[in-house]
Protein backbone atom coordinates (compact mmCIF):
# COMPACT_ATOMS: atom_id res chain seq x y z
CA UNK A 1 0.00 0.00 0.00
CA UNK A 2 1.31 3.40 -0.91
CA UNK A 3 2.06 5.34 2.30
CA UNK A 4 0.88 8.56 0.70
CA UNK A 5 -2.51 7.00 0.04
CA UNK A 6 -5.56 9.12 0.74
CA UNK A 7 -6.87 9.24 4.25
CA UNK A 8 -9.49 6.58 4.97
CA UNK A 9 -12.51 8.33 6.45
CA UNK A 10 -14.68 6.32 8.82
CA UNK A 11 -17.83 8.02 10.06
CA UNK A 12 -19.59 4.94 11.35
CA UNK A 13 -19.75 1.17 11.31
CA UNK A 14 -22.09 1.26 8.29
CA UNK A 15 -19.25 2.73 6.17
CA UNK A 16 -17.07 -0.28 6.78
CA UNK A 17 -18.39 -2.95 4.34
CA UNK A 18 -18.13 -0.45 1.45
CA UNK A 19 -14.63 0.67 2.48
CA UNK A 20 -13.49 -2.93 2.92
CA UNK A 21 -14.53 -3.93 -0.58
CA UNK A 22 -13.03 -0.75 -2.04
CA UNK A 23 -9.72 -1.38 -0.25
CA UNK A 24 -9.87 -5.09 -0.96
CA UNK A 25 -9.55 -6.30 2.62
CA UNK A 26 -11.65 -9.16 3.91
CA UNK A 27 -11.48 -8.95 7.70
CA UNK A 28 -12.20 -6.21 10.21
CA UNK A 29 -8.76 -6.40 11.91
CA UNK A 30 -7.05 -6.05 8.51
CA UNK A 31 -9.26 -3.07 7.74
CA UNK A 32 -8.38 -1.26 10.97
CA UNK A 33 -4.67 -2.11 10.59
CA UNK A 34 -4.76 -0.63 7.08
CA UNK A 35 -6.71 2.49 8.04
CA UNK A 36 -4.39 3.20 10.99
CA UNK A 37 -1.36 2.67 8.77
CA UNK A 38 -2.66 5.01 6.05
CA UNK A 39 -4.12 7.68 8.32
CA UNK A 40 -1.07 7.87 10.59
CA UNK A 41 1.51 7.34 7.80
CA UNK A 42 2.95 4.38 9.68
CA UNK A 43 4.23 1.19 8.07
CA UNK A 44 2.00 -1.83 8.70
CA UNK A 45 4.75 -3.60 10.65
CA UNK A 46 5.01 -0.64 13.03
CA UNK A 47 1.24 -0.63 13.59
CA UNK A 48 1.35 -4.34 14.49
CA UNK A 49 4.40 -3.83 16.69
CA UNK A 50 2.68 -1.00 18.55
CA UNK A 51 -0.30 -3.24 19.30
CA UNK A 52 2.10 -5.98 20.49
CA UNK A 53 3.30 -3.50 23.12
CA UNK A 54 -0.30 -2.73 24.12
CA UNK A 55 -1.06 -6.46 24.49
CA UNK A 56 2.09 -6.93 26.52
CA UNK A 57 1.11 -4.05 28.83
CA UNK A 58 -2.43 -5.48 29.20
CA UNK A 59 -0.99 -8.85 30.26
CA UNK A 60 1.46 -7.19 32.63
CA UNK A 61 -1.36 -5.16 34.18
CA UNK A 62 -3.08 -8.40 35.27
CA UNK A 63 0.14 -9.82 36.71
CA UNK A 64 0.85 -6.56 38.55
CA UNK A 65 -2.72 -6.30 39.78
CA UNK A 66 -2.79 -9.85 41.21
CA UNK A 67 0.65 -9.65 42.83
CA UNK A 68 -0.66 -8.04 46.03
CA UNK A 69 -3.94 -6.87 47.56
CA UNK A 70 -4.75 -3.37 46.29
CA UNK A 71 -5.82 -0.90 48.96
CA UNK A 72 -6.29 2.85 48.72
CA UNK A 73 -5.98 5.49 51.43
CA UNK A 74 -9.65 6.37 51.13
CA UNK A 75 -10.58 2.81 52.14
CA UNK A 76 -12.97 2.54 49.17
CA UNK A 77 -10.65 0.05 47.44
CA UNK A 78 -9.89 -2.69 49.93
CA UNK A 79 -8.37 -5.75 48.29
CA UNK A 80 -11.57 -6.89 46.61
CA UNK A 81 -9.84 -8.93 43.91
CA UNK A 82 -7.79 -10.70 46.56
CA UNK A 83 -10.97 -11.74 48.32
CA UNK A 84 -12.48 -12.94 45.04
CA UNK A 85 -9.33 -15.01 44.35
CA UNK A 86 -9.45 -16.65 47.79
CA UNK A 87 -13.18 -17.29 47.52
CA UNK A 88 -12.80 -18.96 44.12
CA UNK A 89 -9.76 -20.99 45.25
CA UNK A 90 -11.79 -22.27 48.21
CA UNK A 91 -14.45 -23.59 45.82
CA UNK A 92 -16.92 -20.76 46.29
CA UNK A 93 -17.35 -19.87 42.59
CA UNK A 94 -21.03 -19.57 41.74
CA UNK A 95 -20.59 -20.36 38.04
CA UNK A 96 -17.22 -22.05 37.74
CA UNK A 97 -13.71 -20.66 37.78
CA UNK A 98 -13.83 -19.12 34.28
CA UNK A 99 -16.51 -16.61 35.22
CA UNK A 100 -14.74 -15.99 38.53
CA UNK A 101 -11.56 -15.21 36.61
CA UNK A 102 -13.38 -12.66 34.45
CA UNK A 103 -14.76 -10.72 37.40
CA UNK A 104 -11.61 -11.12 39.50
CA UNK A 105 -9.21 -9.89 36.79
CA UNK A 106 -11.47 -6.97 35.84
CA UNK A 107 -11.64 -5.91 39.46
CA UNK A 108 -7.93 -6.48 40.06
CA UNK A 109 -6.81 -4.26 37.17
CA UNK A 110 -9.33 -1.52 38.07
CA UNK A 111 -8.12 -1.64 41.70
CA UNK A 112 -4.50 -1.61 40.55
CA UNK A 113 -5.27 1.57 38.60
CA UNK A 114 -6.70 3.20 41.73
CA UNK A 115 -3.43 2.34 43.53
CA UNK A 116 -1.17 3.98 40.92
CA UNK A 117 -0.46 0.69 39.17
CA UNK A 118 0.64 0.51 35.52
CA UNK A 119 -2.37 -0.06 33.26
CA UNK A 120 -3.56 0.48 29.70
CA UNK A 121 -6.19 3.22 29.51
CA UNK A 122 -8.28 1.32 26.95
CA UNK A 123 -10.44 3.19 26.41
CA UNK A 124 -9.94 5.13 29.67
CA UNK A 125 -8.16 4.62 32.99
CA UNK A 126 -11.55 4.39 34.71
CA UNK A 127 -12.53 1.41 32.53
CA UNK A 128 -9.11 -0.23 32.23
CA UNK A 129 -10.18 -3.55 33.78
CA UNK A 130 -12.75 -4.56 31.16
CA UNK A 131 -10.51 -5.70 28.29
CA UNK A 132 -7.99 -7.57 30.46
CA UNK A 133 -10.77 -9.09 32.57
CA UNK A 134 -13.05 -10.34 29.81
CA UNK A 135 -11.12 -10.56 26.52
CA UNK A 136 -7.86 -11.94 27.90
CA UNK A 137 -9.65 -14.49 30.08
CA UNK A 138 -11.83 -15.80 27.24
CA UNK A 139 -8.75 -15.99 24.99
CA UNK A 140 -6.80 -17.90 27.62
CA UNK A 141 -9.63 -20.31 28.39
CA UNK A 142 -10.11 -21.08 24.69
CA UNK A 143 -6.38 -21.35 23.86
CA UNK A 144 -6.70 -18.61 21.25
CA UNK A 145 -3.48 -18.03 19.30
CA UNK A 146 -1.41 -14.96 20.07
CA UNK A 147 -1.97 -13.64 16.55
CA UNK A 148 -5.75 -13.95 16.73
CA UNK A 149 -5.82 -12.22 20.13
CA UNK A 150 -3.60 -9.43 18.83
CA UNK A 151 -5.91 -8.95 15.82
CA UNK A 152 -8.96 -8.77 18.09
CA UNK A 153 -7.41 -5.74 19.83
CA UNK A 154 -7.68 -3.85 16.53
CA UNK A 155 -11.41 -4.59 16.57
CA UNK A 156 -11.64 -3.25 20.14
CA UNK A 157 -9.68 -0.13 19.18
CA UNK A 158 -11.60 0.38 15.95
CA UNK A 159 -14.99 0.18 17.66
CA UNK A 160 -13.74 2.60 20.32
CA UNK A 161 -12.53 4.96 17.61
CA UNK A 162 -15.96 4.95 15.95
CA UNK A 163 -17.57 5.74 19.32
CA UNK A 164 -15.13 8.63 19.79
CA UNK A 165 -15.97 9.95 16.30
CA UNK A 166 -19.76 9.86 16.76
CA UNK A 167 -19.87 10.51 20.51
CA UNK A 168 -17.19 10.54 23.21
CA UNK A 169 -15.28 8.14 25.43
CA UNK A 170 -15.14 10.60 28.30
CA UNK A 171 -17.15 10.40 31.51
CA UNK A 172 -17.10 14.18 31.84
CA UNK A 173 -18.84 14.46 28.46
CA UNK A 174 -21.32 11.56 28.45
CA UNK A 175 -21.12 9.87 31.85
CA UNK A 176 -19.98 6.36 32.72
CA UNK A 177 -21.87 4.88 29.75
CA UNK A 178 -19.15 6.50 27.60
CA UNK A 179 -16.36 4.85 29.60
CA UNK A 180 -17.51 1.46 30.88
CA UNK A 181 -20.31 1.23 28.30
CA UNK A 182 -17.83 1.81 25.47
CA UNK A 183 -15.29 -0.53 27.07
CA UNK A 184 -17.96 -3.23 27.22
CA UNK A 185 -18.96 -2.70 23.55
CA UNK A 186 -15.32 -2.78 22.41
CA UNK A 187 -14.61 -5.91 24.46
CA UNK A 188 -17.76 -7.78 23.32
CA UNK A 189 -16.81 -7.09 19.69
CA UNK A 190 -13.22 -8.21 20.28
CA UNK A 191 -14.34 -11.45 21.97
CA UNK A 192 -16.50 -12.27 18.94
CA UNK A 193 -13.52 -11.53 16.68
CA UNK A 194 -11.54 -14.20 18.50
CA UNK A 195 -13.86 -16.77 16.96
CA UNK A 196 -15.48 -15.42 13.77
CA UNK A 197 -14.87 -12.71 11.16
CA UNK A 198 -18.51 -12.01 10.33
CA UNK A 199 -19.16 -8.28 10.43
CA UNK A 200 -22.78 -8.38 11.52
CA UNK A 201 -21.95 -10.71 14.43
CA UNK A 202 -19.22 -8.34 15.61
CA UNK A 203 -21.53 -5.34 15.18
CA UNK A 204 -24.30 -7.02 17.17
CA UNK A 205 -21.98 -7.80 20.07
CA UNK A 206 -20.81 -4.18 20.23
CA UNK A 207 -24.36 -2.85 19.97
CA UNK A 208 -25.56 -5.15 22.78
CA UNK A 209 -22.61 -4.17 24.95
CA UNK A 210 -23.34 -0.47 24.72
CA UNK A 211 -27.15 -0.75 24.77
CA UNK A 212 -27.08 -2.68 28.03
CA UNK A 213 -25.17 0.09 29.80
CA UNK A 214 -26.88 3.17 28.32
CA UNK A 215 -27.68 5.85 30.85
CA UNK A 216 -24.89 5.10 33.33
CA UNK A 217 -23.88 8.26 35.17
CA UNK A 218 -20.45 9.26 36.46
CA UNK A 219 -20.70 10.21 40.15
CA UNK A 220 -17.43 9.16 41.81
CA UNK A 221 -17.12 9.65 45.56
CA UNK A 222 -14.48 12.28 46.37
CA UNK A 223 -13.76 12.68 42.65
CA UNK A 224 -11.60 9.55 42.77
CA UNK A 225 -11.52 6.70 40.26
CA UNK A 226 -12.66 4.21 42.92
CA UNK A 227 -16.36 4.13 43.74
CA UNK A 228 -18.45 3.18 41.74
CA UNK A 229 -15.78 2.86 39.02
CA UNK A 230 -14.02 -0.32 40.16
CA UNK A 231 -17.15 -2.49 40.37
CA UNK A 232 -18.51 -0.98 37.13
CA UNK A 233 -15.50 -2.60 35.45
CA UNK A 234 -16.70 -5.96 36.77
CA UNK A 235 -20.21 -5.38 35.42
CA UNK A 236 -18.90 -4.19 32.04
CA UNK A 237 -16.63 -7.25 31.74
CA UNK A 238 -19.42 -9.69 32.61
CA UNK A 239 -21.74 -7.85 30.21
CA UNK A 240 -19.16 -8.11 27.42
CA UNK A 241 -18.98 -11.89 27.76
CA UNK A 242 -22.78 -12.22 27.81
CA UNK A 243 -23.17 -9.95 24.77
CA UNK A 244 -20.46 -11.80 22.81
CA UNK A 245 -22.16 -15.09 23.55
CA UNK A 246 -25.55 -13.76 22.45
CA UNK A 247 -24.03 -12.52 19.18
CA UNK A 248 -22.14 -15.76 18.54
CA UNK A 249 -25.39 -17.65 19.08
CA UNK A 250 -26.80 -15.73 16.12
CA UNK A 251 -28.87 -13.10 17.89
CA UNK A 252 -28.86 -9.91 15.78
CA UNK A 253 -29.11 -6.36 17.04
CA UNK A 254 -32.30 -4.65 15.93
CA UNK A 255 -30.83 -1.14 16.30
CA UNK A 256 -27.61 -0.73 14.26
CA UNK A 257 -24.45 0.08 16.23
CA UNK A 258 -24.16 3.61 14.81
CA UNK A 259 -27.67 4.46 16.03
CA UNK A 260 -26.88 3.02 19.47
CA UNK A 261 -23.76 5.22 19.63
CA UNK A 262 -25.78 8.28 18.59
CA UNK A 263 -28.29 7.41 21.30
CA UNK A 264 -25.50 7.24 23.85
CA UNK A 265 -24.44 10.76 22.85
CA UNK A 266 -28.03 12.04 23.01
CA UNK A 267 -28.55 10.52 26.46
CA UNK A 268 -25.14 11.84 27.55
CA UNK A 269 -26.10 15.34 26.51
CA UNK A 270 -29.22 15.16 28.64
CA UNK A 271 -27.39 13.92 31.75
CA UNK A 272 -27.02 16.91 34.11
CA UNK A 273 -23.46 18.06 34.75
CA UNK A 274 -23.82 17.03 38.41
CA UNK A 275 -23.68 13.43 37.15
CA UNK A 276 -20.79 13.86 34.72
CA UNK A 277 -17.58 13.48 36.72
CA UNK A 278 -18.11 16.60 38.83
CA UNK A 279 -18.91 14.64 42.01
CA UNK A 280 -21.78 17.04 42.68
CA UNK A 281 -24.55 14.47 42.48
CA UNK A 282 -25.46 10.81 42.80
CA UNK A 283 -23.35 8.52 44.98
CA UNK A 284 -20.83 11.32 45.55
CA UNK A 285 -23.34 13.36 47.56
CA UNK A 286 -24.73 10.55 49.69
CA UNK A 287 -24.17 11.05 53.42
CA UNK A 288 -21.38 8.48 53.41
CA UNK A 289 -19.88 9.71 50.15
CA UNK A 290 -19.65 13.25 51.49
CA UNK A 291 -18.11 12.06 54.75
CA UNK A 292 -15.41 10.15 52.84
CA UNK A 293 -14.75 13.17 50.63
CA UNK A 294 -14.43 15.44 53.68
CA UNK A 295 -11.95 13.05 55.32
CA UNK A 296 -9.86 13.01 52.13
CA UNK A 297 -9.80 16.81 51.91
CA UNK A 298 -8.49 17.05 55.47
CA UNK A 299 -5.50 14.81 54.71
Amino acid sequence: MNMKARRIRINGFTDIPRLMSKLNVTTLPDFFILSESVNKSMPRAEVIDKMERVLNALEESIVGALSQPNNTESGMVAGGASLLQQFSAAGGSLLGTAFSQVICNAMAVAEHNACMGRIVAAPTAGSCGVIPGALLTVAERHHITHERLLRSLFVAGGIGDIISIRASLSGSTHGCQAENGSASAMTAAAIVALFVDDLSTIESAAAFGLKNLLGLTCDPVGGLVELPCVKRNVVAAANAVACAEMALAGIKTVIPLDEVIDTMAAIGNSIPSTLRETSKGGLAVTETGQRIAATLRDK
Binding site: V54, C115, R118, V120, A121, P123, A125, A156, G160, D161
Partner: peptide, 21 residues
Amino acid sequence: MGIFDVMGPVMIGPSSSHTAG
Protein backbone atom coordinates in the same frame (compact mmCIF):
# COMPACT_ATOMS: atom_id res chain seq x y z
CA MET B 1 -8.35 10.19 17.24
CA GLY B 2 -6.86 6.90 16.21
CA ILE B 3 -6.77 3.31 17.37
CA PHE B 4 -3.83 3.89 19.69
CA ASP B 5 -5.47 6.91 21.31
CA VAL B 6 -8.28 4.51 22.24
CA MET B 7 -5.98 1.59 23.17
CA GLY B 8 -3.84 3.65 25.48
CA PRO B 9 -1.88 5.33 26.82
CA VAL B 10 -0.04 2.79 28.91
CA MET B 11 0.13 4.75 32.13
CA ILE B 12 0.33 4.80 35.88
CA GLY B 13 -3.20 5.18 37.30
CA PRO B 14 -5.60 6.27 38.46
CA SER B 15 -6.60 9.13 36.13
CA SER B 16 -5.60 10.02 32.57
CA SER B 17 -6.19 13.72 33.24
CA HIS B 18 -5.13 14.02 36.89
CA THR B 19 -2.21 11.55 36.83
CA ALA B 20 -0.91 10.91 33.28
CA GLY B 21 -1.71 14.47 32.14
